[in-house]
Design a protein around this nucleic acid. Structure first.
Lengths: 360, 360
DNA sequence: AACGTTCACTGAACCGGTTACAGTAACGGG
DNA sequence: CCCGTTACTGTAACCGGTTCAGTGAACGTT
């Protein structure tokens, strides 16, 4: 079996046809399962395929037919949050009989566009953008153009876990999580525990998702009658390292007794920073994260955080992309909820007698 | 800009050619950058491309030319270890001017084969298998067949972080890490700290990588004059959950004072189990992991583990696949080293007076 | 003036599939 | 026995690119 034909290169459908003594059309029909040939013919063709180790050329095939590909574009392939979403996308895609390909932009905005283009060139049926990215107006315009191009080709661009600022007439669907209210709940949780000096370890201000979390944080403060203090918000890029650094600044320069972090990763950094500075969590410092990635369970103390339904985000995005009916509006939007999951990283502030610095 | 042509579907190269008043050959050459046309012609063509919002059909293109695709196949897209390797693959692939696509098998062996096939159908220049998988003889045979098929098409199959049992004549390259000696070093580290009852939280016995770690563990025991005790090795599937369960069994059923885990994930489970059973790490139980994924830094206590150069594994694999000279042997093998990185999860055993169970 | 080059470009034959259209054989009904 | 189906198969025209072989004009030689 699989005795490579003498010549180099791969066998083509004509090789198979001539070896089986039938026409290419017959081979094509049999292989694509279009119809049932009489057992004898079927057998002969299959034998020829076997003998020649023939595999169809999917590129040639999708010259006339749908490619069956769903493409997912991710900023950072090592980010647990993104990859959890990605697994939801994948799951739904294979459930719908497609194959799912993941491609990373390595954080470079231009690569995002070129990757989308690539997928468009390859005839992907849906392109799903997972996660945030800084959005200049130019970038947004190009994204809109790409979406229109995809649309014209009968494909779909879906934004997942990332808001869309491009207007409703662009053929773009969006699945996101209500992060503003998640942030509100998280911050409220800290305020209810008695904290008044609640810091926020924000994400990059260019990221719209970061903006939403900041807004929720500020709204909660105001709702509890606490005046937002700009000194209490530090910016990081949501990674562990930059979370560590920003938290160090917060802990040394301010009197914050609690930190609401824009991501679990930066919360991990914050906890490490606290430990290195001799502050114990949650006794000396309460920490709340965002995302609820698996890591949250393994931090010490186990991290109280805002649960974002990552897999469901991915699944919804894929469903939106693939199950589209003729008269759907050009642009649809699904918003999933989030909720805080309470674990062990929050406690009441150490001393309620704030003025004095003496131990209670 | 991008004023969609009246008709549906995408513009083809002939549309562009006729609009620019040149032949398709000219357009093709200009767009593929094959030669430099006079500015006037170049300009006309580019304008037509712009007007029609033309994008090449990459599938049609790769009917005649190399696809420039590198494919990576992963078992679990959410595994930090795999995705760290994956980022190395991706990095090297784009450095070599290719695009890199990731595809997951979702842990199903048959899907591994079908995904490889798919990539073969699509004309990938290299297929890189990242991570282990149970290998039946049949699976191995099919893998060999796939490798031969790829080879005939001028592509390459590379196994990364996964050994190859299929013989050296198969056109398969392998990049792996010396896990046996990593396991030896890790176990020795525990033995040197004074432990004699060292348990092993093994991976699935069908996984060859798990076997290597078990061997290193046993060799270390023998080297230190300790008789391996089968009761001290528990099997898990390297996930956190199954690590938790296996560790619970180990902690309640045996008198182990240290556990060498086959992965950091299962070590995380073991630490959680110890905590839930009221044993403190490292005072009552020492734990060593394997892989050195980012999580290791965030566990409490910070996890002593065996560092596996994940990104480098991925980079090497890609280099092997892409940089191949004519007279290279059919099958090459690169083995990278590993070393234990000491953090805080190991301490001498609590009581050297093991016989009595009284508190010291 | 005749001739060899180079330049800019074209026509048409590929690449490897799918599929519309058409043709043949066998079968069953009237 | 004739004719309309039905079942199967073949021919050839696509799909959308790349590229080989070649044409005609302009240019520089001798």
């Amino acid at each position: 079996m699989a005795q490579g034909r003498g010549s180099a290169g791969r066998a083509t459908i004509r090789d198979v046809a001539s070896r089986a003594g039938v026409s290419v059309a017959t081979v094509s029909r049999i292989l694509s399962g279009a119809y049932t040939a009489p057992p004898a013919t079927h057998e002969r063709v299959m034998q020829a395929v076997q003998d020649l180790d023939y595999v169809v050329n999917a590129n040639a095939r999708s010259l006339n037919t749908a490619s069956g590909m769903v493409a997912m574009v991710v900023n950072d392939i090592t980010s647990p949050f993104f990859m959890n979403v990605a697994s939801g996308v994948e799951e739904q895609a294979v459930a719908d009989g497609r194959v799912c390909l993941v491609c990373s932009t390595q954080g470079v905005p231009e690569r995002e566009l070129s990757v989308i283009d690539l997928m468009r060139q390859r005839g992907a049926e849906a392109v799903i953008l997972v996660g945030g990215m800084a959005e200049t107006e130019e970038h947004l315009a190009q994204l809109t153009a790409a979406a229109e191009g995809l649309d014209r080709a009968g494909a779909r661009l879906v934004l997942c876990a990332r808001p869309w600022k491009g207007g409703a007439k662009a053929p773009v669907d969006v699945v996101e999580c209500d992060m503003e209210s998640g942030a509100f709940a998280a911050t409220s949780h800290l305020l209810s525990a008695g904290h008044t000096r609640v810091a926020h370890l924000a994400g990059p201000h260019e990221f719209s998702v970061a903006g939403q979390r900041l807004e929720g944080y500020e709204r909660a403060l105001r709702a509890h009658g606490v005046k937002p203090d700009p000194a209490l918000v530090a910016e990081s890029d949501m990674t562990r390292e930059s979370g560590y650094e920003a938290a160090c600044r917060l802990l040394t320069d301010t009197d914050a007794t609690a930190i609401f972090c824009a991501s679990d990763m930066s919360a991990a950094g914050a906890i490490a920073a606290a430990r290195d500075l001799g502050r114990s969590v949650p006794d000396d410092l309460s920490v709340v994260g965002f995302d609820d990635i698996p890591l949250a369970e393994d931090l010490y103390p186990r991290l109280t955080t805002v649960h974002v339904p990552q897999q469901e985000l991915g699944r919804s995005a894929t469903r939106l992309a693939l199950h589209r009916r003729p008269m759907d509006p050009p642009s649809r939007r699904v918003v999933l909820g989030s909720h805080v999951v309470v674990r062990q990283s929050v406690a009441p502030p150490a001393r309620l007698n704030t003025p004095g610095k003496a131990e209670s």
